[in-house]
Write a protein that binds this DNA or RNA. Sequence first.
DNA 1: GTCTATATTGAGATAGAC
DNA 2: GTCTATCTCAATATAGAC
Lengths: 213, 213
Amino acid sequence: MAKAVRKRGDSAGDARGSLLASAAKLFASRGYATTTVREIVERAGVTKPVLYYYFRSKEGIYLELMGEPFRKFESLLRETASEEGTAKERLVQMCLRVYETFLEHLDLARVMYAIYYGPPQGAPHIDFEAYHRSLQEAVRGVLEEGMRLREFRRADPADMMWAVMGTVTVAMELELCNPSRSVGKGGIERMLDLLFEGIAFREGIPKGKGTKG
Amino acid sequence: MAKAVRKRGDSAGDARGSLLASAAKLFASRGYATTTVREIVERAGVTKPVLYYYFRSKEGIYLELMGEPFRKFESLLRETASEEGTAKERLVQMCLRVYETFLEHLDLARVMYAIYYGPPQGAPHIDFEAYHRSLQEAVRGVLEEGMRLREFRRADPADMMWAVMGTVTVAMELELCNPSRSVGKGGIERMLDLLFEGIAFREGIPKGKGTKG
DNA sequence: GTCTATATTGAGATAGAC
DNA sequence: GTCTATCTCAATATAGAC
């Protein structure tokens, strides 16, 4: 155990990255509250002052950790909203990218779930709700556009939005708790297809999708 | 605060019930690990030995607490599986009853979510996964029957199952974290309707459901 | 500076009177 | 069945030797 041994090959900025990775893993597996600074630095192979140099505090490294995926998430929504393609195509893209971002940050997703659904654990407050809501708004926006373009049939946009969210939610939570049974991106596409066959407008069928059943 | 005052009107078996209610609220709001026996008994207006008399331990009251909704959940699945009605009707019933059971035990659902998605918190192990899976199997069973009866169109039953689960999941999680925006039972029915319009078989339409779009 | 031994605390759990 | 008073134990904090 002792001093934990950073090899000479490690580049300079690596300590920072090691600390982030270490904190992510520990927050994910043991929770924010129960993870100690000592554990984080030990696992990263550095000493306490290094953590405080880069991040000021345990809260600091937590906020830094959560910051990145959320920034990525926001830019993802902006991009997808202003893209080419049918409403359906954009919606599928949006769902798949959200899911991809989720996969790229599984550990952080775990931390987020634990704090969102569990007791606060003394972690500094992050407005997860706001991010979740901006995803909802983005999805709903595309759905409403699809309705205007008569690509989708008319229904309560909120209901449609939640049905779409349901497919992504299920895929994500399966990945979190039961990765071996994960449906993956393919699964999301197939679920959305099932849903679209009900959402798709059925009178003047716009593109080329007949009743293929 | 002091002694916490049990009024004379309280009937005999009430201490037990108060303890259960108290533990449910506290486990839900503060988590299993951080909730102390002292807090539980104080809130219930009794003393420690009363808790140990009825439940043997902190783990005991936790298991007792979780036991009831899960027993109810299992009988619910059995009942619904062996009922009258079309596959769609039974599926909707099943979803609505799961959701109702969830609503009746919101606090416990919160505890369950915290432990399922978060760190174990030292709580005794409960195989939530098994219950979740039996729900999945029940839903899938009805779906497959619906396919055999040509009430639903053919598709991967697992995909359909997850799509259905998604609607319930979304409704439940909304209720947990954002009850003011809850979609409620009506929302589940509407989401399922959206989904069915895609799942419903479209060639020899069995019952009386034409393309009403 | 670091390590080990010793307090202190606060948790879960119990004994025995009533 | 419920109380007061107490026990056990583990985690943390601290003191003092090295």
